[in-house]
């Protein structure tokens, strides 16, 4: 089962069902420039369906990470996916409000996400709803109540 980029773009477009007229949430990008092939923007509710879609296509979760967009008042969670048989790299990104960052966990789909999400929770304070275990801190000291990669973090 080797997915093609076109197939994947179609599937994502069907899954995400973007409004007519709005910019497409699924963008094919040049690998040589960005290091990814497909850039997908989803809403928090679509994170798990997107992961399930990629799981069906045989993708593996590369990493989960956050970005703190202080100026926009948003937190971004980026899910990187890789495929072991074909060279397609997919980045799925979701933005949530900065004062209440919460996205559903994908650890039920990809157990490997468990640790990545714990790490992201440590660093950004993003809550992953339904995650089996977000505390105590994973990489930070056991009593840490701060999130050091937030842009307004002052040590």
């Amino acid at each position: 089962m080797k997915p093609s980029l076109e197939q994947l773009t179609q599937d994502f477009t069907a899954l995400l069902a973007p409004d007519a007229g709005a910019a497409s949430p699924v963008q094919v990008v040049d690998f040589a420039l960005r290091g990814i092939n497909l850039d997908v923007t989803v809403t928090p509710a679509q994170v798990v369906p997107a992961a399930q879609l990629l799981d069906r296509h045989g993708f593996s979760l590369d990493t989960v990470t956050g970005v703190d967009w202080l100026a926009q008042g948003q937190m971004e969670v980026v899910y990187d996916y890789m495929h072991f048989a074909v060279n397609i790299r997919v980045a799925v990104r979701v933005r949530v409000p900065r004062d209440n960052p919460e996205v559903p966990t994908v650890s039920a789909v990809f157990p490997g996400a468990n640790w990545h999400e714990r790490e992201t929770h440590d660093f950004f304070g993003i809550r992953f709803a339904g995650h089996p275990k977000l505390s105590p801190p994973f990489l930070l000291p056991e009593d840490a109540d701060y999130h050091p990669l937030k842009k307004d973090y002052k040590p």
């Binding site: 979760l61 890789m82 990809f110 157990p111 490997g112």
Partner: peptide, 10 residues
């Protein structure tokens, strides 16, 4: 196995 590696990203 390969499936476990895929699910965990090993």
């Amino acid at each position: 196995d390969a499936e476990m590696c895929r699910r965990y990203g090993a």
